[in-house]
């Protein structure tokens, strides 16, 4: 999926000049992008625009040259199941469900991964032993890793990660980025990571300063 961004600008706050707001650029399939900015400059807003949660902006976003403003709620639901996956900054896990239940809740929409695959992903991120623990009992860093695995349990062409490694140690960040890059390559998907500054040792196609 090619994403064509045409001079978007949020209408509910005034951001500083950047390489995103009011610019024309493309996010292309198979490429990786880093959106780098200080806190409060609108990273999450940019992700929310792309994920269809917020449309308070001027300008146009086109998915494969189709204006996202024209998408119906049903089309958005389909997109969120089949084409776009996200790790929210606030994670949005359900605290009353276990780590595995949280992941399966998403996975069952498309039955994209088997339980064995999910467990192996959790193992890779060193949270396999926590699969059956309630999300509310996990540390924030552990929850971030569960949320990353959840985001991988669906088909996607665009993966949005909003400060996904903020509470994870460097060893686990390497594990996580490797897992994510494997998945991105296998699917020829676009990866967009938002970060406050760290580039997580990934060789990005492009870095956008926000």
């Amino acid at each position: 999926m090619t994403i064509h961004i045409q001079e978007i600008y949020p209408t509910y706050f005034t951001p500083a000049s950047s390489e995103v707001w009011s610019k024309v650029f493309y996010l292309e399939a198979g490429k990786t992008y880093l959106v780098k900015a200080a806190s409060g400059s609108g990273k999450s807003s940019f992700f929310n625009f792309l994920y269809g949660l917020n449309n308070k902006f001027t300008g146009t976003i086109l998915f494969d040259e189709k204006d996202i403003a024209s998408f119906s709620e049903t089309e958005w639901t389909q997109l969120r199941r089949q084409k776009i996956s996200i790790v929210f900054q606030g994670l949005r896990l359900f605290p009353e469900l276990t780590a595995m239940e949280n992941i399966q809740l998403k996975n069952q929409l498309t039955n994209h991964k088997t339980e064995a695959e999910i467990r192996s992903y959790l193992e890779r991120l060193d949270v396999g032993h926590l699969a059956d623990k309630k999300a509310e009992t996990l540390s924030y860093g552990q929850q971030q890793r569960v949320a990353i695995v959840r985001a991988l349990c669906q088909p996607f062409e665009l993966l949005l990660l909003d400060e996904p490694f903020s509470h994870i140690d460097d060893v686990q960040i390497d594990n996580a980025t490797q897992l994510i890059l494997d998945e991105i390559t296998a699917r020829n998907a676009t990866l967009v990571i938002a970060s406050l500054g760290n580039s997580y040792n990934i060789d990005y196609s492009k870095t956008l300063l926000l």
């Binding site: 706050f13 409060g40 609108g42 990273k43 999450s44 807003s45 929310n48 269809g52 949660l53 917020n54 449309n55 308070k56 929210f88 900054q89 606030g90 949005r92 909003d162």
Partner: peptide, 11 residues
């Protein structure tokens, strides 16, 4: 509905 979600409070 779009924009009324609790999620959009993140900037």
């Amino acid at each position: 509905a779009v924009n009324t979600s609790l999620l959009t409070t993140e900037i």
